[in-house]
Design a protein around this nucleic acid. Structure first.
Lengths: 234, 234, 234, 234
DNA sequence: TATGAATGAGTGTTCATTCAT
DNA sequence: TATGAATGAACACTCATTCAT
């Protein structure tokens, strides 16, 4: 059930195909529903973004057909070109569009009175809930997959997500070291270690979940135990 | 030999492929070069495998053109079909062909008198040398990327590599716990944690190395410190 | 209409196909030429059908190239696939498309006050005019030629044409016997005999006409003489 | 069962594929079997002719693959080119090779003391036995099918078979008229009429036999009744 | 002479992109 | 603005033909 969560930005749009509505349905000319041009256009664009991501995730960039995206979005193929220059730039723009809100949602708010472990654990839980157990895990995998062919995306992803997350994480680690919560001082040199099990979880869900389910929350908790020492009580 | 050497080469070899040789190279009649038919055929096949892997890694399955593979391998397009049924089964067979020797090479030999940490550290070093700092890292990324579209490969990879590696790792962890080298008993439930930084290293090299180099060996060492406690002396 | 006219043309029309027209022929806005989309599409489809039949007749199924059909029809190759699933089903659909109206046109109208011989002779004349001396003769030859490789077509042809024609012919023969016009009672067991010279005529025109012309009408008349006895007067 | 008769020239060769015999079977070096080179070559050639005809009949010229012919003949693909210039000339030569003995076998020997009807009836019986109920019927259909693409073959067939048969038939008809066996004098102008049911029989067997079996001998007999009048007694 | 691996031109089919409506 | 029919370049795969062995 978790896997049915939406990909982001776009709201729960009914996802009805072209067939589901009357052709040439010009909308209610003067109703309360989004009746002005701009809103309709935005709605269409959102539908395309949503559909495109689903398709790209399912098939990868090269194997995805614009026909399928259009059908899924309930628009004509030509309409896509009113919103995007071509397939390639659509893909790049898409990933950006979806990643940005994702990043901000995951940005750990620095709560002063809380232990570093609790902060990181809270972050981990959010990550599992919002990413690992979501179709967004596949988005991450998609980026890993298409990265080499889309250096622009790899760069963007590095800049906006990876680098930022690692910087944040390093700061937390240093705080943990300063507060005496973390013993291993070298950890600050490799914040990747802190994130590695999360990456593992994402990939596992996307590829091996059906072979062997993985309790991501538990795994991350155990990993934190290694770093912070086992929790005294609970 | 020739193939694996190439796939293992760290830096981007000139990549001229067999094509750069003179066509109709009859082989030196009295040299060490293979002069009989079977050997020539095997050589051709190896060239195709090599070329195909390079192309698949660089572009992914769908975007790779058989034309390019043939050109890079220095054979005609039709020749590919003397060795493989079609593009799809070529891809699957390829991945298998490359993974199998990889697995056996990484199988940690159970050295009785050695500490668990040393065994794992030795393994980690081998992994970094043979995979992370090699084009093989890209192969792993390729599998992660194409997995969903090639369930057969994902299954094979899970069965032959993932599952096997985790079982081996779990056994080592349990040994470490029994010997008192490892404190965190729950680690045996998540051998993925032990492997996670290695996965991180592989992906990092493949995607982000040019943004920020990563000393994989150091990272893995630090991670082992978390698990086994810091090394006493050195 | 346009198509059947063409297929029915006795001599080799200039065969320039639609391609010879100016591309982007917008149609005369106030002329009789079809100006709306559906009509244009139908026109295109007709052009493809026409071109395909010419090519299939001239070269047979396997040797016909879609490229040539497209060029002759004056459309792009991809356009063919907007109308037909693939080459094979195009061929089958084509044959059906052309045969059906042919059959209905040949259905002998049962004129009550006329002698059986006159009915058959009228039918024979129609057949010669509409089939034997027409490109349709080649279509029949095409069906005989490709039948074994297209059982669906052979079946269809048997069901819709052969079986139907023989049944009709048998009824006429029995009527002729009952009326005393036909002596040979066994003829009703082999209506094929009645049709055989027509088949011969079709094949002759298609293959040997240039070696030796054949007056199909005369031949059929002589054949009827054998069956009904020679005409008294004239 | 009838349909299993061989195609002609070539004797009952075992028709074993390559697999059936030892590779590199050099033949008995000094046995009684055809041991000299020429004989072996002729044998090979015969096998190719045989195999090629089967394939061409089954699939038509364009759809037949030399690979299949070679496999069926039990020779390597290259061997075909030792005997034939290319696929096209192989086809033409083949048809000639098979037709010639066919013609001579069917040439009605002019028996002086026999009635024309009996001569023709004997001929008809032979034709049914040797052609209609044989794979040779398919050969005729093949010629009809490929004729337009192989004018040389169509010409050859017209010259060697059609024209000759019609001339012979015309002579018989004239004899029949002279002797008073045949009433309809115009029949001499259209010997095709005499042959038409035979053609019908050939095509019927090849295409429609499975829908409705046809007793060719009976049909031809009834047809002769139309021409010669019904047989008095028997 | 016979082989069959290798070739590469050729063909059916797909699909991103355009553009008249 | 939205449509979707039409386009044609691109690509996987085939197969007649060659030629080194």
């Amino acid at each position: 059930m978790a896997r049915s969560a939406k990909l982001g930005a776009v709201r729960q749009q009914p996802k009805r195909g072209v067939a589901a509505r009357t052709r040439r349905d010009h909308g209610t000319p003067a109703g309360k529903s989004p009746s002005n041009r701009a809103a309709k256009a935005a709605e269409r664009r959102a539908a395309i973004v949503e559909a495109a991501l689903e398709e790209f995730i399912a098939r990868g960039f090269a194997a995805t057909r614009l026909d399928d995206i259009a059908r899924r979005a309930g628009v004509a193929k030509g309409t896509i070109y009113l919103h995007f220059k071509d397939k390639e730039s659509m893909f790049e723009e898409l990933v950006r569009t979806v990643i940005v809100p994702l990043v901000s949602r995951l940005d750990p708010l620095p709560s002063p009175g809380v232990s570093v472990r609790d902060m990181i654990e809270a972050f981990a839980r959010t990550f599992v809930r919002e990413v690992v157990n979501t179709r967004r895990a596949d988005l991450v995998r998609l980026i890993l997959a298409e990265g080499p062919r889309f250096p622009a995306i790899a760069d963007f992803y590095y800049r906006e997500v990876v680098s930022r997350a690692l910087t944040r994480m390093r700061a937390l680690i240093e705080l943990g070291i300063a507060r005496g919560e973390i013993r291993e001082k070298d950890l600050a040199r490799f914040p990747q270690i802190m994130v590695a099990p999360a990456l593992m979880a994402v990939i596992w869900q996307s590829l091996f979940a059906r072979h062997a389910p993985l309790d991501a929350n538990e795994m991350l908790r155990v990993h934190l135990n290694l770093i912070f020492g086992e929790r005294r009580t609970a």
